[in-house]
């Protein structure tokens, strides 16, 4: 008893150091346990990793999709298709005329030949077009309106269509609107999916921690009997949860990176066929860190639930 009293008096710094080193020991020990108990922990880790990776991949895809849309939205182009009989010279004149229009900020003339060439380069359908004797494409003027207001844009379209040389002027606003609506739905879907899967991760970790606690039941009972606080007994299991979350998050980041980069190649090819350069952005180091942070968060929450449920069962 005297000894204990003396210990209580020992310096605050010393005790803090002990506490920190004790935490560090637990962190090391629980990590070691994960490594020495490979089968169970690998299964749990994989489950956790996939559950975190799935929404991460979808989130990456939808945010890329939306930022792609934003880019289109910034400069909606009006494609002005000229009549078949209009010559290149006439087309250039029309283009200059359009440039004078107060509502037009840019107008670019693309001859039928240029359009065909680009189309052949950017598309797998080139074979079909080569098989045709004549170029089926008309001359086109690409017009960028100065105002993005939908009303202004549609007025502009109507006034362009009044030109004699113009066959048709089109801007597909409805198409844009629809895409935006779809992307919003996608975003919500990802959110709901993430919620469900993250809940699953929390339950998996809580369960895994519960199993670990059952496995150490005798030791926990004894520790409580010799005067361990509940916090002391729970600590290693909280760290176990931390490691599961961290490992699962790390693995999820790897899975996400791999999936996104394998998708990236085909997306780039697709983008080129639309005459734009576009690469998937996986979020880089920030994305990876975010996934790991999410993993750690889920691990800690899951462990808290598992720990408080199962240690309560033991008591005494």
């Amino acid at each position: 008893m005297n000894q204990n009293r003396a210990e209580k008096k020992s310096g605050f710094l010393l005790r803090t150091r002990l506490l920190v080193s004790g935490h560090f020991d637990d962190l090391k020990k629980t990590a070691a346990e994960l490594i020495t108990n490979p089968l169970n922990s690998t299964l749990s880790l994989l489950l956790i990793a996939v559950s975190i990776a799935l929404p991460s991949i979808f989130l990456t895809l939808t945010t890329n999709f939306m930022s792609g849309l934003d880019r289109i939205d910034e400069s909606p182009k009006i494609n002005v298709y000229l009549r078949e009989e209009v010559s290149i010279e006439e087309g250039m004149t029309v283009t200059r005329g359009l440039l004078e229009h107060p509502q037009v900020s840019e107008a670019t003339f693309i001859s039928a030949d240029e359009a065909l060439k680009e189309f052949q380069e950017g598309s797998n359908l080139s074979g079909i077009l080569i098989a045709l004797d004549e170029n089926p494409l008309p001359h086109v003027v690409e017009v960028v309106p100065s105002s993005l207001d939908p009303l202004d844009v549609s007025n502009l379209v109507m006034s362009i269509e009044l030109y004699d040389q113009v066959q048709e002027a089109s801007i597909n606003l409805r198409w844009l609107e629809r895409l935006f609506a779809i992307s919003l739905i996608l975003k919500r879907l990802v959110f709901v999916l993430a919620l469900i899967l993250f809940l699953g991760v929390i339950l998996v970790i809580a369960h895994t921690i519960g199993v670990a606690i059952q496995f150490k039941r005798q030791e926990i009972e004894l520790m409580l009997l010799i005067g361990a606080t509940h916090g002391f007994v729970k600590r290693p299991f909280r760290y176990l949860g931390f490691w599961y979350g961290f490992g699962g998050g790390l693995l999820a980041a790897v899975i996400t990176e791999l999936s996104v980069s394998s998708l990236s190649a085909s997306v780039e090819a697709l983008a080129q066929s639309y005459r734009s350069s576009y690469a998937l952005d996986s979020g880089g180091i920030v994305g990876i860190l975010a996934i790991i942070v999410v993993g750690v968060f889920l691990g800690v929450v899951g462990a808290s639930i598992g720990v408080s449920r199962h240690v309560k069962e033991i008591q005494n």
């Binding site: 008893m1 204990n4 005798q218 030791e219 004894l222 409580l224 009997l225 010799i226 005067g227 361990a228 606080t229």
Partner: peptide
């Protein structure tokens, strides 16, 4: 309770070793 238990040493019939 843990404070009380730290003042007491207990020996068990089945010794409760790990």
């Amino acid at each position: 309770i843990y404070k009380i238990r730290r003042e007491i040493g207990v020996v068990y019939q089945n010794h409760r070793l790990l």
